[in-house]
Design a protein around this nucleic acid. Structure first.
Length: 351
DNA sequence: CTTGCCGGGAG
DNA sequence: CTCCCGGCAAG
């Protein structure tokens, strides 16, 4: 029984998520750029999530946004430059030293990640806005480092490891970290994996390829909550670890992904192919009920936090929506979808 | 109680 | 494979 359940889950997963390694068309590459931009946009604005929506505008003009966290370009030499998303008049304003504490740990290079003590996004919000926000239950965060080199996507558990990987495998350098010029920093990203209640079936805690991550992780609505946090990691970026609102099935975020977040529903994305040239204003795509990032983007890992549910509860919760039986009634049984007629899960009114 | 649907059986 | 249904679990 559980096996078939897993298969079902897998179906759901594969239908909503593409394999990251899929070959990309030009268009998709462009979408990656946009994705990158959106991520960064979200990263830079997300602390505002905790303010009421009314305050969004105010917040956008607020101090740290003016600091400019928008990537406006990424030159071939590998250096980001920054400018505000809507106000390009101020591109060179240095980034404010926002809650630097949350970055020190993984900038330190030698460390293997500050897993459990890393500030969570609540802290960032509190620091920035001085709001006494009720603290969320501490998550068991697993910090991983993912290689962003094109078609690589290797995930290692330590920054040093990923740096060495990039240095040796991609940059073709054979020396120790001592002779590093720090270029590796551009080619990996830190992934915070919220393993909260992910006990069942999620073997992705150990270093695995992203394709495995996304294709085998139980993501359906019945899956345990899983949360990736992604933020870029190098000296020229100052971004807080944040949640990005989700676009998946459970998401009801009305319009954009830079505003109107629903903090309880979150996901984040990551992308590959670091040498991305991004120009222009990031798009803020609207999304349909069941699709958004995850289906537009081949390299997006989208994970939604699901309602609390006992891990290991095998039986799928019953569908909520109206089913053939309810809609047509017993007397019109021949109007039912075949599945309903056969007492199987309704195919016509899928949840 | 009703309803959705899993597991399994019959043809 | 199609079709059916016992029976369980959720509501």
């Amino acid at each position: 029984r559980s096996v078939s359940l897993l298969e079902q889950k897998r179906k759901v997963v594969s239908s909503s998520i593409d394999v990251p390694h899929a070959r990309k068309s030009e268009e998709e590459v462009d979408m990656d750029k946009v994705t990158a931009a959106m991520v960064l946009t979200s990263l830079s604005t997300s602390p505002l999530v905790r303010s009421p929506p009314v305050k969004m505008g105010e917040g956008l003009n607020g101090s740290w946004k003016d600091g400019g966290f928008m990537p406006s370009s990424y030159s071939s030499s590998g250096y980001w430059s920054w400018s505000a998303p809507s106000d390009h008049s101020n591109p060179s304003t240095p980034s404010p030293p926002l809650s630097a504490d949350s970055f020190k740990p993984f900038r330190a290079g030698s460390l293997s990640g500050p897993p459990d003590d890393a500030l969570d996004e609540q802290d960032a919000g509190s620091l920035l806005f001085d709001e006494p926000i009720p603290r969320k239950r501490k998550n068991s965060m697993k910090v991983m480092f993912k290689c962003l080199w094109k078609n690589c996507g290797k995930v290692l558990s330590t920054a040093a490891g990923i740096q060495r990987h990039i240095r040796t495998v991609h940059l073709g350098r054979n020396c120790d970290s001592e002779c590093s010029d720090g270029e590796e920093d551009f080619y990996y990203t830190e992934i915070k994996l919220n393993t909260d209640s992910v006990a069942d079936g999620l073997s992705s805690l150990s270093p695995v390829s992203p394709s495995v991550l996304s294709s085998s992780t139980p993501l359906s609505r019945s899956a345990p909550s899983t949360l990736y946090l992604v933020h870029a990691d190098h000296a020229y970026q100052a971004t807080a670890p944040v949640n990005i609102p989700c676009t998946s099935t459970a998401c009801s975020t009305p319009s954009t992904h830079t505003a109107g977040f629903t903090p309880s529903t979150s996901c984040s994305i990551s992308w590959q192919s670091p040498p991305v040239t991004f120009t222009g204003t990031p798009a803020s795509p609207t999304h349909g009920r069941t699709q958004g990032f995850s289906e537009q983007r081949s390299q997006t890992i989208t994970v939604l936090s699901s309602p609390p549910r006992a891990a290991g509860s095998l039986r799928k919760s019953r569908g909520e929506g109206k089913k053939c039986r309810k809609v047509y009634g017993m007397e019109n049984r021949d109007m039912w979808c075949t599945a309903c007629r056969w007492k199987k899960a309704c195919q016509r009114f899928v949840d």
